[in-house]
């Protein structure tokens, strides 16, 4: 393995780069999941998809009550209708995806070797629309969130599998996402990790900070604060604003790569979306 990396590094990386600098998603995954498992030994790996609810009995009880009839139910029904509707050209979303788009959400975001970019499920849906002569949907909320809710629901329980291929552009995207995740930004000088790794499970005023592990598994989700559905990228934008950082564009490379890294760190956990959060 080491030799292969070295050889590849010599081939593709800038002169002078060391083999040890090559992104290593597999080792990162072990370290990342190991960090949480060691810090919270009572919480099993799969339970991390429940976000903050393993850390507060009271919040868990309220969540359970709310999940009796989940508030995303309307979005789910609407998303299914949208997903199944025919485009003006007679085709539908199903034709754009493997398995007709059913049960595939666990494989996104996905690296597209053709464009050399990361494609989130939302961006894939928009690509499908454009390919069929339709305009793009907003990636943060509304019909897109509903479609993603439906597609994600068909993957509920399936194991997240976002494997970074051994492709220099894929690895670069992964690495960019990783760097974004750990870089402090904004006037408040917070990184994603400040809240969702270091302070995970602690209270920030009224709410428990969700651990980064498993955090993507419940998106899209209905937030009581929003009063409607939102996608992962909507949350990225919200977090950025909260630390007083100007957010990126929803389809930016920064957010694609961040979603790629963050989701890959939950490899092996089950999809639990759509979800509900405070």
């Amino acid at each position: 393995m080491k030799f292969a990396y070295l050889a590849l590094a010599l081939l593709v990386m800038t002169p002078g780069a060391l083999a040890s600098n090559k992104p290593d998603p597999a080792s990162d995954l072990k370290a990342f999941q190991g960090y949480f498992l060691k810090r919270f030994p009572k919480i099993p790996l799969a339970a991390y998809v429940n976000g903050p609810y393993d850390f507060s009995k009271s919040e868990r009880a309220q969540w359970k009550q709310i999940m009796e009839f989940p508030p995303y139910q309307f979005a789910l029904d609407h998303g299914r209708k949208l997903f199944e509707a025919k485009f003006p050209n007679g085709k539908s979303y199903a034709a754009c995806f493997p398995h007709g788009g059913i049960g595939i959400a666990q494989n996104y975001p996905m690296f597209d070797p053709k464009t050399g970019r990361v494609v989130t499920l939302g961006i894939a849906v928009n690509r499908c629309r454009v390919a069929n002569g339709l305009g793009k949907l907003k990636l943060t909320t509304g019909p897109m969130a509903d479609i993603l809710a439906y597609m994600t629901d068909t993957s509920r329980g399936k194991t997240i599998d976002v494997t970074v291929p051994d492709n220099p552009k894929a690895l670069a995207a992964y690495q960019a996402g990783k760097q974004y995740f750990y870089s402090r930004r904004g006037q408040l000088n917070f990184s994603c990790a400040s809240c969702h790794v270091q302070a995970a499970g602690m209270h920030l005023r009224g709410n428990v900070l969700a651990p980064a592990l498993g955090i993507t598994a419940s998106f899209p989700l209905y937030r009581s604060k929003w009063g409607n559905m939102g996608t992962l990228v909507r949350r990225f934008i919200g977090c950025n604003k909260k630390v007083r950082s100007v957010p990126d564009k929803p389809d930016s490379a920064a957010y694609r790569d961040l979603a790629y890294f963050l989701t890959s760190m939950s490899d092996g956990l089950p999809i639990a979306g759509p979800g509900a959060r405070p």
Binding site: S58, A61, Q62, Q65, N207, K225, P278
Partner: peptide
């Protein structure tokens, strides 16, 4: 009802 509401907009009360 909860001691502390998760979100004041949605407080489950039985």
């Amino acid at each position: 009802a909860p001691d502390i509401a998760e979100n004041g907009a949605v407080v489950p009360v039985a």
